[in-house]
Amino acid sequence: MTDNLILDVRGLKKHFPTYKGFLRRIVGYVRAVDGVNFVVRKNEILGLVGESGCGKTTTARTIARALDPTAGEMLFMADDGVVDIAKLKRDQLYPIRREIQMIFQDPYSSLNPRMTVKQIIAEPLKVHRMATGAKLESRVASLLDMVGLRPEYMERYPHAFSGGQRQRIGIARALSLNPRLVLCDEPVSALDMSVQAQILNLLQELQETLGLSYVFVAHDLSVVEHVTNRVAVMYVGKIVELAPTEALFGKPRHPYTEALLSSVPVPDPELTLEKIMLLGEVADPSNPPTGCHFHPRCRYAEDRCRTDTPSLRVPAGEADTHSVACHLAEKLELNGVAAE
C-alpha cells in the first residue's frame, strides 16, 4: 500500500439475502454492492454518485462497518499500520471507529431529541475515553466553534435548531474524535438551497484545515462537481466510471455518465441543450440484466454488451487515472458538460 493512500477497497461485495415463504428460505440475493475497487487518497474528496439502488450508500456504510461485507478487502491505513477493516471482528472495530466517522443525510433523525447538544457531541469522547470534566466541556465548545455554532448553545436540545444548524451539530459529532476518513452520506440533500452552500463550504474548509479525506456520497451532480477531486459513478452495484472530477464531467467515457450529466436540469433558461432520454428505469439489483447491466437503457449497445460483462479498465489513449467499464469506450465520442 503506497504512502499517499488512506483506504484501498478491493473486490468489495455486499449481498442482502431475500427470503420467501413460511420457512423464510433464502430465495435470492440483492447484489447491492457487487465487486467494487477503488482507493481513497489522503486529503482527497472522492465522490460516489449514482441513482437510487446503485449501492453508493451501502458502500459507505460497509466501509464504516455499519454493515458487514459479503466479500472483499478494505485496507485502511491506520495509525499503527495497515488494517483490513473487512476482516475485523465486531469487538476489534473499536479503535477503527475513532478514525472513520460518518455524516448522515437527515439532520432530523440522526440526532437524539432527548439529548442536549453537549451530550450528543460529548458521547463519542466519553465512549473512547478521550476527555472528561472541564476538558470535555472545552472540547465540545471548541468543536461547536469550529462548525460555526455559538458554544453557549450546548445546553440546548436539537429541536431548537434549524436543519442547517443540526447538520453542523452532526458534523461536530463526527469530528469530535479527530477522524482521518469521513464518510459523508448525502450531507446537503435534505437542506434548503439557501443553506446548502454554507454547509458545503464548511465541509470543504474542515477538510482542508484538518487534512481529512472524504468519501462523498451524493446524487446531485452539480454538488459533486463542486466539491470532489475524483468521482466514481455507480450503476446497479458496480462502478462504471472512475476519474478525476474535471475529466469525468468534461469528457465522460461511459454512456451512463453521459446520460446522467445530460439529465440534470440546468438553472439557465437560455440554454436549450439536447437531452439524452434514458429509456426505462434502473435495473433491479436482485435480478440484474446479463452482460453490461446498463445495456437495456444504452443507446449505443451492441450484441456483446448483452452477453459479456465489461470490467473497469483504462481505455486505450486515456490517462491512467480514468477508468471505465464499457466495451465500446474507444469507439464512442461522448459529451460532457464543460463550459464553452
Binding site: 439557501s194 458545503l200 454538488v223 462537481e225 463542486h226 468534461g250 440546468v266
Partner: peptide, 9 residues
Amino acid sequence: SIPRLGRKV
C-alpha cells in the same frame, strides 16, 4: 449560491 454543472467556481 447553487453550484452549476460545467461551471465550477
